[in-house]
Structure formats: C-alpha cells, structure tokens
C-alpha cells in the first residue's frame, strides 16, 4: 500500500486520493450505485474459477489454462443455446449451463489425459491451449456462431436479450446473477469437500506428503483427472454465465483474463475457499477502483496494473517470510549451506 502510494506520488498524483479512489469509491463513492453491482459481476467468475483451481493447486497439479476452459465453456454453452434459437423452452438455460461445464471439462481433459498417459507437463499444455481457445473464439464469433442478423459484424446473437438463455440480474441493483450464486455455492461446496470429504483429504494429502498419499492409496492419475476436470468444468460454467449475462454475446474480445486473474485470486486466498471468496472480492474491487482512478484521476492503466501486481507481490512475499527465514552468510563459498532459506520450525505450512 505504501509502495503503491509512492508510485502514485511519483506519477504526480495525490497518493491518498488515489488509494481512496481505488478502495473506497467503488463501494461508497458518488457512482457507487453503478459500481457496487459491478463488484459481484467481476468477483463472481473469479471466485468460481479460483475455487476450482484451488483443488489442483493444493495437490500440486497446475492448471494454468483456466482462461481457455472459460472460453470453451462459453462457446459450447452458447452453441447449444443458439442451436435451438428461437425456442422459448425453460430447459434451454440449464442445458446451456451443462454444455458450458462439459466444454470446460473437455478442454481441461486434454492436458489431464496427456499428463496421465504420456507424462507431459500440464502447465505448458494447458497454457498453450489458452491460445488455441482464443483462436477458436475468434473463429466462432466470425463463423458458425455469428449473428445472421448482425449485418456482418463479428459476434453472436445477444444471449442476454433472449429470455430463454438470459442470465439476468436476480436482485436489482446488486449485480447478483446465476453465476454469482453458483460461485457462492461452489465456495460452500469446496469448503465441505475439503473439510469433510475423502476427496478433499486426498487432495490435501497429495499436496503435503506425496509419498504418504501413495501409501494411503491415492491414485495419482485419477487425482489429476479429477482436479483438472473440476477446475475445467467450473471455469466453463463461469464462461457460460458471463456470455449469457454481463457480456451478452460471443465476441472476439469476449475473454478479459478472468482465467489468469483467478490464479492470483486462488493464491491470494491461500487456496482456502473462504480466502478465495474474500480475495475475489478484493481483486474485483481493485479492478473497478482502478477503472475509476483511470477516468477520474487520469492515472495510466499500467500504473493500476502495477499496483495490483505489487499488492500480490507483497502478500505472497509476506507469506514466504512467515514460513521461511532468510539467513545471510558472510562468505558464499561453502556450497550446501548458503543462500538456501532455512525452513523455520515455527512457520506452519498451512
């Protein structure tokens, strides 16, 4: 926060005003009635995706491609809906949600199965599939899913204006839509799963003591598939809620990086469901506050991103310093015992 203030001061802005604009104004400022709902709209997908990711991250399975799974969920969900347009059945929206989940799930299965079968690195494969997914998105927006009445503009029909597929604001003025409801439900479900279910236990065990997990009988392949599948499905659902609600349509620039930001949210929340809930809200706040600061104070967008980056950096650094103790040695010649931070027994890895 102090470093952020210095940064803003260096840019010639009043640091206190800047920080107030970012953290206070979105909730209680002049335009709060407009910005407050935005908080949940932005936090919803972040929380949903981060909750899914947290399982894999706890078990040491690194799905970095949630962004791609999010995009695929939106495309498949929208495709299923548009296939039956303009029917008005009430089943369409639930069907689209399922299709979105399956889309994200299937996209996550590619790195998962490659890892299980051929031992590929899931980090690389899932990340590369993000770029495949964004190109698929462009193709869908310009090709099969393009609005036939759109006069050639890229983008699909507006799903939020078609009542059968719309994901409306449930309580006016809150920003609460089905995606946010699902995110909260996911947080609760994740909490229960981690605390009371043997799947959650296996995930924690595999992350903390891999050999003990093997001894206990945790099947590592099944764990990879389950964790990747879960995070993929939740990311896909998040994409579907976004495309039917706040975004409204499949467009070329539909994805705005929720899938990547969710990784940050997951770690900020220390992979704990409640922590993720709070971290998602905080991250959404800095996004909205950052936008306000951009328009009102004329702060460059890059400065806001830097501020967010610093926020994360300091939080994670704090985490590290709580767990490890740095030791400085006078001469760095003795190989095995220098520079490597020593784990202190006081810091419990939790």
């Amino acid at each position: 926060m102090v470093a952020g203030g210095l940064l803003f001061a260096a840019l010639g802005k009043d640091p206190f005003v800047a920080i107030r604009t970012i953290f206070w104004d979105p909730l209680f400022g002049d335009f709060a009635s407009y910005t407050r709902p935005q908080l949940l709209i932005k936090a919803g997908p972040l929380i949903l995706i981060a909750t899914g990711l947290s399982f894999g991250f706890r078990a040491g399975i690194w799905n970095i491609g949630a962004e791609g799974q999010y995009v695929l969920g939106a495309i498949t969900g929208a495709a299923v809906g548009l296939a039956v347009y303009p029917s008005e059945s009430r089943l369409i929206f639930p069907l689209m949600v399922v299709a979105g989940a399956l889309g994200g799930f299937a996209w996550a299965m590619i790195p998962a199965l490659l890892k299980v079968r051929f031992g590929t690195n899931e980090i690389l494969v899932s990340l590369m599939l993000v770029y495949v997914a964004t190109n698929l998105l462009a193709w869908a927006a310009l090709g099969p899913l393009q609005n036939p009445e759109g006069r050639g503009f890229p983008g699909s029909r507006n799903l939020s204006q078609w009542s059968a597929s719309a994901n409306p604001e449930l309580i006016a003025g809150t920003g609460m839509h089905w995606g946010v409801v699902t995110a909260f439900a996911a947080v609760i479900a994740a909490y229960v799963l981690l605390a009371r279910h043997s799947f959650g236990f296996n995930v924690r065990l595999a992350g903390q003591a891999p050999r003990a997990a093997a001894f206990a009988g945790v099947n590592p392949s099944r764990l990879v598939v389950a964790c990747m599948g879960l995070s993929g499905a939740l990311a896909g659902v998040a994409g579907l809620f976004e495309v039917t609600g706040p975004a409204g349509q499949i467009s070329i620039d539909f994805n705005v990086g929720y899938g990547f930001t969710a990784i940050i949210v997951a770690f900020l929340g220390r992979l704990h469901p409640i922590g993720i809930l709070l971290a998602g809200l905080l991250m959404a706040l800095t996004y909205i506050g950052g936008e306000i600061a951009q328009t009102q104070l004329g702060l460059p967008a890059a400065a806001i991103q830097m501020f967010q980056g610093m926020l994360l950096f300091f939080l994670l650094a704090m985490d590290l310093l709580v767990q490890f103790r740095l030791r400085w040695k006078a001469r760095a010649i003795e190989v095995p015992r220098t520079v490597i931070p020593q784990a202190s027994p006081a810091g419990e890895a939790r």
Partner: peptide
C-alpha cells in the same frame, strides 16, 4: 515422516490415512 504419515497433518487425519 512423509511416507507412513503426513507430517503436517494431525494424528486424527493420520489415523484416517490408512
């Protein structure tokens, strides 16, 4: 430590382990 038991987990959790 680490094979027969998970060091950071409680004895309750380690009892559940096997």
């Amino acid at each position: 430590n680490g094979h027969a038991s998970a060091p950071d987990m409680s004895l309750i959790e380690n009892a559940f382990l096997t």
